[in-house]
Amino acid sequence: MKHPLDACSAWRKSSYSGGGDGNNCVEIAATPSHTAVRDSKAPTRATLTFRAPAFAPFLQALKSAPLR
């Protein structure tokens, strides 16, 4: 069974879409209780879903991680 956010029409593309055609990014969709993240190049594949209170720490961890 898919998560309700999988069918969400409010997906937003990241502002850090990369150069060129802007396809190297992720999309997010949010409800009051959850935030979902998916690959913009493969929107029908798996979705990473966070409870709302966990999403901000996830983003902070990404920002503080060293680039590889």
Rank of each mutant, 00 (worst) to 15 (best):
M1H: 11
M1Y: 07
H3M: 09
H3I: 08
P4T: 12
L5N: 04
L5W: 04
D6E: 15
D6S: 14
A7D: 14
A7N: 10
A7F: 12
A10H: 10
A10T: 10
A10R: 11
W11V: 03
R12A: 15
R12C: 14
K13C: 09
S14M: 01
S15M: 10
Y16N: 12
S17P: 00
G20W: 08
D21Y: 04
N23D: 11
N24T: 06
C25I: 04
C25R: 03
V26K: 05
V26T: 09
V26P: 01
V26Y: 07
E27V: 08
E27I: 09
I28L: 13
I28E: 04
T31D: 08
T31E: 05
P32A: 15
S33V: 08
S33Q: 12
H34V: 04
T35D: 07
T35M: 11
T35E: 09
A36S: 02
V37H: 01
V37A: 06
R38Q: 12
D39S: 05
D39P: 01
D39N: 08
S40E: 12
K41I: 14
A42N: 13
A42E: 12
A42W: 11
T44Q: 13
T44H: 13
T44A: 15
R45Q: 12
A46L: 09
A46E: 10
A46P: 00
A46I: 03
L48I: 15
T49G: 06
T49P: 00
F50G: 03
F50H: 02
F50P: 00
F50I: 06
F50D: 05
R51Y: 04
A52I: 08
A52Y: 04
A52L: 06
A52D: 05
A52N: 09
A52W: 04
P53A: 15
A54D: 15
A54I: 01
L59H: 00
Q60L: 11
Q60Y: 01
A61R: 04
A61V: 03
A61E: 08
A61N: 02
L62S: 08
K63M: 10
K63A: 13
S64N: 10
S64K: 10
A65I: 03
A65Y: 05
A65V: 04
P66Q: 13
L67T: 07
R68A: 14
R68Y: 06
